[in-house]
Amino acid sequence: MFRVFFLLLMGLLVSSCNKHIFAKAPSPLKKITIAYTFQPQSTLIHVAKEKGFFAEEGLEVVPLMHQYGKTALRSVLENEADLATVAETPLLFSILNDDKIFILSTIVASSQNSAIIARKDAGISKAHHLKGKKIGVTPLTTGDFFLDSLLIANGMTRKDIIPVPVLPDDMEEALKLKKIDAASTWNYPLTQIKHLLGDNGILFFDEDIYTETFNLASKQDFVTKNPEIIKQLIRAVVKAQEFVKNHPKEAQEIMARVTNKTPELIKEVWNSFSFNVTLDQTILITLEDEARWAIKNKLTDKTKVPDFKKFIYADALKSVSPSAYKLNRVENEN
């Protein structure tokens, strides 16, 4: 009887060895360029790259780093990169601009990432004090939309303030030099500025008014020509999602290393994000909200909210992780 057991064991060993050998069978890595950022929203891409998940899936990722998603998307449109990580706001404007793009998946969502940081010495201690103040904002980004939403939530409109266009990385400087009284921005700059201003700073935010998303996007052309690469990419990102879920400490360490930020800062903002690779109503609802906002504020010459579903490419996600595709379960259609 022992012998039978032994044989079985040997068989198992041999077969598992075989699997290993097959898995390691070399196949040339496919090279792709991803335009992404050092923002917390790009965590999954950093983790996938650092943990070798892209390589495991047969991809060699060439990073093309950007300050924020809007420029990352632009580099895709200008054929400098194959894919970009980008918030839904730049995607909206790209779609309104008739760019042929596909949203492949949301990779993170947050309703706590955006805020307005104001200087108290500019006489701001309540939200309605923002009236008539110079507020730094990066146009056509989430910060732009959030500013609008926060104003509305406090009974104001854009006309009540003076918007000043500032690049995200220049916000800190602009506040320091008192070029602006407040800034509508996101992490990491947001938390960094908060620490910098210390007692002089005050934060305005409202979790109920805006849910921001960060997404993987690409040109339609690239997607239809390389459906396999998209699958490999999504698979690697899903692996990263699992890793982040199961090893948050290590993921934070990776982020601290690659973004050159302090671990404390990384940890402080960490819980504001849910790193879920998914396609659900959030992206559609938010895009529609923002489209109405853009139309109303004449930020586009379009007059109709487009059908954003046409700009969503779900095949890859559906095949890699069927349960992550939730656009077929619509609560209010039930």
Binding site: S111, S149, I152, A153, D208, I209, Y210, T211, D280, Q281, T282, I285, T286, E288, D289, R292, K326, V330, E331, N332
Partner: peptide
């Protein structure tokens, strides 16, 4: 409108 959208998102 914004609140309704956010509520939809949460309910979803």
């Amino acid at each position: 409108n914004r609140l309704i959208s956010q509520m939809y998102i949460r309910h979803n």
